[in-house]
């Protein structure tokens, strides 16, 4: 029964990774942009929530809800100001620009908030838990997994069934021709990045309730999110969810044997997938081309 509960906890952990990763997956799939500042933006949002709680005296959930539109706006502005231009400059530019952004954010946060770990007081959501036989259902973890399902399900449906989603997919297929159909690509990409950053901000803030937040947390956040995207397969949001869950379950199960090896095990899982199946478990041929640089 313990291992069953451990697996369940791993799925919860993975739900959190997937919620962070879904934005990375979306931007990667639509714009072929690997946003190396993805985790740092999530960490930024977490600090913003703690600052708002302190400054405005509002409870955690209110600050979280206030933060989301700001995160969306920040993502849209970054897309318009930096990422669009980076995508036009050349294949290496997005990596260089987003990595530069990541270093800037980390050092800004360090200067503003110090390098210490800061707690995120979330009140009652943090401690609530239900028990079901030998299984523990922590309220926060259940919430994160549920949000991952809602966000991924909602995004998949929006991409599949709405005009916005159709335009996003068309632009992803062929930017030049999409423009000739009257699609304004810049605002469209701005909404995509806005959604991606808002989802990451939500996941990062909820995640920090358990772990606390510190300026360089974004590095590990990015790595786990990237691993979830790659293991799941580029262009598949549901694949990203499964990728996140695989990482989470691996970490929790290994940590039962040896805590220091838990993270290492998930990194090795990622490298294994890259060697055996670089297009990911649910990826397409196009994903393989993206991974290896060959034309799809």
């Amino acid at each position: 029964m313990t291992w069953l509960n451990d697996t369940l906890q791993g799925i919860f952990v993975g739900g959190g990774y997937a919620l962070t990763a879904v934005g990375l997956s979306l931007m990667f799939g639509v714009m072929r942009l690997v946003n190396l500042a993805h985790g740092d933006l999530a960490v930024c949002a977490t600090y913003l929530v703690t600052s708002m709680m302190a400054a405005l005296g509002v409870p955690f959930l209110a600050a979280l809800l206030l933060m989301l539109p700001l995160a969306f706006a920040a993502g849209a502005v970054l897309q318009l100001a930096l990422f669009d231009r980076a995508l036009r400059t050349g294949p290496l530019a997005p990596l260089l620009v987003t990595f530069g952004l990541s270093i800037m954010i980390q050092n800004l946060l360090q200067q503003t908030y110090s390098a210490n770990v800061r707690g995120v007081p979330a009140g009652s959501i943090d401690v609530s838990a239900a028990h079901l036989g030998g299984l523990v259902l922590p309220g926060l973890s259940v919430l994160k997994l549920a949000l991952a399902l809602v966000v991924i399900g909602g995004l998949s449906a929006a991409l599949r069934f709405t005009g916005w989603g159709r335009r996003v997919r068309a632009t992803s297929d062929d930017v030049a021709i999409a423009r000739l159909q009257g699609i304004r690509v810049r605002p469209l990409f701005a909404t995509v990045t806005g959604i991606a950053i808002a989802a990451a901000a939500l996941a990062g803030t909820l995640g920090a309730v358990t772990t606390g937040v510190y300026p360089t947390l974004g590095t590990l956040t990015l790595i786990f999110a990237f691993e979830a995207v790659v293991i799941g397969g580029l262009g598949s949001l549901w694949g990203t969810l499964l990728g996140g869950i695989l990482i989470g379950v691996t970490q929790v199960l290994v940590s039962q044997v040896s805590v220091p090896y838990a993270t290492l095990a998930s990194q090795l899982l990622f490298l294994l997938v890259l060697v055996v199946r670089p297009e990911g478990l649910f990826g397409t041929g196009e994903a393989a081309g993206q991974a290896t640089g060959a034309e799809a």
Binding site: V34, P94, L95, I223, E227, Q267, L271, L274, Q290, A291
Partner: peptide, 20 residues
């Protein structure tokens, strides 16, 4: 077999593995 962002992040993960 990797290129672009995959190569960049995978090489980073290798360094992280060695560190861990």
């Amino acid at each position: 077999r990797l290129s672009g962002g995959y190569f960049a992040v995978a090489s980073w993960v290798v360094a992280e593995c060695l560190f861990l």
